[in-house]
Write a protein that binds this DNA or RNA. Structure first.
Lengths: 189, 189
DNA sequence: TAACGTTCTTGATTTGAATCAAGTTGATTC
DNA sequence: GAATCAACTTGATTCAAATCAAGAACGTTA
């Protein structure tokens, strides 16, 4: 069984019936490295759970890509803004490594929640976690200097540096790759 | 009748009964300039609609406040992250002008939606708009230089410069008041 | 293993915003 | 209307990160 189902069940125990219904709606996607889950300008039609791999969310910019977030196993990917409003997305989501994503379409999600109200809890939880994540991200961008953002990331998520190409980490920190490289030599020795 | 009810009714026509129920849960707050609607560390227990006045949301920082958003008439204020999770808020929301806010407690909101399912639409709409707003804000912070953020704000929301003390606008643009002052003399003349 | 392309590092220089430091303007109070 | 305080402006200087420019390390393919 896919780990995402195991994890959902662990947090929100579901009846056998609900669980089956959920599993039946799952669409399994295999994304190659650099393949897009969501492209700017298209409507985000489904929400995905990363079963394996990693992805990044970024905004297109004339000069450089602006990376806003990384996602690993058990993360939820998608643009809630586009998914809910059904307006074109302003963000891109792309696989960093070859990845496996379990995706649920909007229609299926709506039907599932309607027929299995216990899933409403899950959906609320996901939205709640997204708000929390967003606030923390905004806080980091507004309150901390580039150098401090680097140190905080290193402290809180050291594995990111092992797993993600540094150019993307630099973009996430909103600095150039050169600056990141200098921080690393300065603080990592 | 408060304008917020008028506007809700315009977007999502409600039955007389639902409308009455909603009005009965409204708590009217009068906030003096500089009075807090939500303080960092406290749980956000209600969501407010600004009937009159203006407010700002900011993150506390050792050196300076980091302003993330402004709210005017008909805006929704609160920390969804804290409101939904019932964890202490990491943001502050404070009145810029003397303001009138129509507030709804979490319990009332939950009860209202349960008894009047048509209000679920309204709640979903508010959450959706919040996601859209957040994505746009992140985009501006990540993609654009301080100078470009200034020009964009001037173009899209010129009234902000009339109504909001410039120190807060500077904080919102993530620049110092001195830099904002220089931009103004450079680009407004 | 040689050749290529990509990613990362290192150095020199430039630059845009922060900081530091006075002023000026404006609003409020006595 | 003077005095006070906060908000904003202006100027001089400093500083951190961007840019520009090579080069080194690494992975992949021939």
């Amino acid at each position: 069984m896919k780990r995402i189902f195991y994890n959902i069940h662990k947090i929100f125990p579901l009846t056998e019936e609900t669980f089956e219904a959920l599993k039946n709606c799952a669409r399994i996607l295999h994304l190659q490295k650099n393949e897009f889950f969501l492209t700017e300008g298209e409507v985000c039609s489904s929400i995905g759970f990363i079963e394996k791999g990693s992805m990044r969310l970024f905004y297109n910019s004339p000069d450089r890509e602006a990376c806003n977030d990384f996602f690993f196993e058990n993360s939820v990917v998608g643009s809630f803004a586009s998914f809910l409003s059904e307006m074109p997305s302003i963000v891109n989501i792309v696989a960093i490594e070859n990845s496996e994503v379990i995706a649920f379409s909007k229609k299926d999600i709506n039907d599932l929640i309607e027929k299995h109200p216990s899933l409403k809890q899950l959906s609320d939880f996901i939205i709640q976690e997204h708000f929390i994540r967003t606030e923390k991200r905004e806080e980091a961008l507004l309150k901390f200097s580039p150098e401090l953002r680097f140190k905080n990331l290193l402290e809180e998520h050291p594995k990111i540096f092992k797993r993600i190409p540094l150019q993307y980490v630099a973009s996430y920190l909103n600095i150039t790759p050169e600056t990141l490289s200098r921080y690393r030599s300065r603080f990592l020795v």
